[in-house]
Amino acid sequence: MMYHLRQALLAMRANFTATFSTLTTMTITLLVLGAVLLLTLNVNRTLEQLEAQVEVAAFLKDDANIPALLGQVKLYQGVHDARLVSREQVLAEMTRDYPYARDAAALAGNPFPNTLRMRVERVQDSRRIANIVQALPGVATVEYGANYVDPAVKTLNAIRTAGYGLVALLLLGTLFNILNAVRVAMFARRNEIGVMRLLGATPAFIRMPHLIEGVLVGLIAAVVSVSVLAASYLELAKRVAQLVPVFPIVTDLNTIAPILVGIALLSIVIGLLGSLFATSRYLRELE
């Protein structure tokens, strides 16, 4: 094994440019992947918080059959909870936020309707449920915060999807980079490989230094990227928590650590896979 390790290190040194280029691409890819994953983690946390807060409010007509409506909406799929807020309770809430509301009500009467407030299980269901409830008899209008819920969900999902797309492309690029680097290394050793084959070396023996090379590149890229990611994310999280305390940024190490470990393992697996493909193909061409 020491022989193979030494050969791998010699190959990496002899083809420094190709190795360095692979290492750089791989590190950048892992950094972007890590950033996307950590962003997704925070997006999911934000969505969860949004979901916990978003309510669909149905403003009822005076002649609405309130008990029947309440019973009906509770049966809808996606409705987590539904409750009636009477017009008096609405006025009290409004007076708490806007003290002049009571004076206005004293002059012109309570303008607020009885309201059904529904909590949804997923924020994406808000529009669907609002449309269904809107069509019910006795419902005047429905409000579900469309102005901010829809764009927020769309934006967060778009960021997440674009991030995954970018990472997929970068991973593919990294794989090709490793294929190329290992191929260059094998070509540089072609005389030695030719002699090995004549002497009866097995394919496993011939490819071993290159598999080690792939794993080493993956390992180095993993160490660099995970270190940079961890340090910069924790620093960023600290600053965000100070600047925007309401933003639910994840700082729990038990939640972040599995992502970082996953990135490191992925890096090593990609290094190994790239080398496996490259060596198999090169040896097949020699047959």
């Binding site: 084959r197 004549l198 002497l199 009866g200 070396a201 394919p203």
Partner: peptide, 8 residues
């Protein structure tokens, strides 16, 4: 995979 055995 048996080719190396011949060459040995």
């Amino acid at each position: 995979r048996r080719t190396p055995l011949l060459r040995r």
